[in-house]
């Protein structure tokens, strides 16, 4: 186990190096740079002044030099400052990570609390009305984009009922009630696709487990239905479910880009979205690197959980 962990951690290095190269290349390949943004289309600007502005951001240097300089700072733990806001990127991340983390955790909690019981129920009562209703629900959940659900929620709960504010983020420690009010609609919107996928996986995982011989044996030897369910069915079904949660967590983080923009939340998704559209290179590169690290670590955690759930893997 220890050796396995160390090997996985070492694998992080080439992965992250690749990510850094890729994101650097991609963001520099899109036309335009920060100077287009700070200049706007103030088109009276002279060529010399434009060059001056470019130079002030260090963009006059060749790309390999820019990459080497950036990497040099990153290796010392310095992500640099944003072109756009001129704030330190770590400072900004420390403000924003908790927001996105809260959003993702709340969304994942909603999804798990809703999807797993319904999925199990749908599997047990296969081909019943509950099963059909769950299937239709899943279909809607998968096909309805979450920005649309967000808009529907805003129209119903802010515009018509006036219950929940559509914007106006406050940190939890300053105003817990206000915070939950603001975070409710975003996390529900974000939870939607995950709920749908999870429900589907839970149903098929439970169905698969139910069909196993040992379940039939357990029943045959007269174990109570509840014991069969928890000891033999759910335990086996949980492995694919955990995998799905782990993989979908990345999709969840991707979804925060749109959801945070709609609800005016100061999270990572919004930060990276604004930075891409303004070609704020240090932020795009730095934040992608941090997010990639987080993602790789999450999949590592999922793999470890796996091992705990599945004795076959534990002994390897």
């Amino acid at each position: 186990m220890g050796r396995y962990l160390i090997r996985r951690m070492l694998l992080l290095i080439p992965v992250l190096f690749g990510v850094s190269l890729l994101v650097f290349a991609l963001i520099h390949a899109i036309p335009g740079d920060i100077t287009n943004f700070v200049i706007g289309t103030d088109t009276r600007i002279s060529e010399e002044q434009r060059e001056l502005v470019k130079k002030s951001y260090g963009l006059d240097q060749p790309l390999p030099v820019q990459y080497a300089k950036w990497m040099g700072h990153v290796l010392q733990g310095d992500l640099g400052t944003s072109f756009r806001t001129r704030r330190d990127i770590w400072d900004e991340l420390s403000l924003r990570l908790p927001v996105t983390a809260q959003l993702a955790v709340m969304a994942a909690a909603f999804a798990i609390l809703l999807a797993i019981p319904i999925g199990v129920l749908a599997a047990i009562k296969r081909n019943s009305r509950i099963d059909y209703a769950a299937t239709i629900g899943t279909l809607i959940g998968i096909s309805l984009p979450n920005f649309l659900l967000a808009t529907i929620l805003v129209l119903i709960f802010s515009y018509h009922l006036k219950w929940l504010p559509p914007i106006g983020y406050v940190p939890f420690r300053e105003d817990p009630v206000g915070n939950l009010k603001v975070m409710l609609m975003p996390s529900v919107s974000l939870a939607l696709p995950l709920t749908a996928v999870l429900m589907r996986y839970t149903r098929s995982a439970v169905l698969e487990a139910l069909s196993h011989d040992h379940v039939r044996v357990a029943r045959a030897k007269g174990l109570a239905g509840r014991t069969v369910m928890s000891r033999h069915v759910l335990r086996n079904a949980s492995i694919p479910i955990i995998t799905v949660v782990g993989i979908q967590f990345a999709t969840l983080l991707g979804g925060t880009v749109i959801i945070e923009t709609i609800f005016g939340l100061p999270g990572i998704g919004r930060y990276i979205y604004e930075s891409i559209s303004t070609r704020d290179y240090p932020v795009v590169q730095g934040v992608t690197l941090v997010m990639a690290t987080i993602f790789v670590l999450i999949s590592l955690v999922v793999d470890i959980l796996y091992a705990f759930m599945d004795p076959r893997l534990r002994h390897r």
């Binding site: 805003v154 929940l164 559509p166 914007i167 106006g168 923009t261 005016g264």
Partner: peptide
């Protein structure tokens, strides 16, 4: 000054009373 970049959210914030 509250930031409400999304059109729907901005209008809803006014109607709802956040701003």
């Amino acid at each position: 000054l509250l930031i409400a970049a999304n059109d729907t959210a901005r209008t809803a914030a006014l109607v709802q009373g956040t701003v």
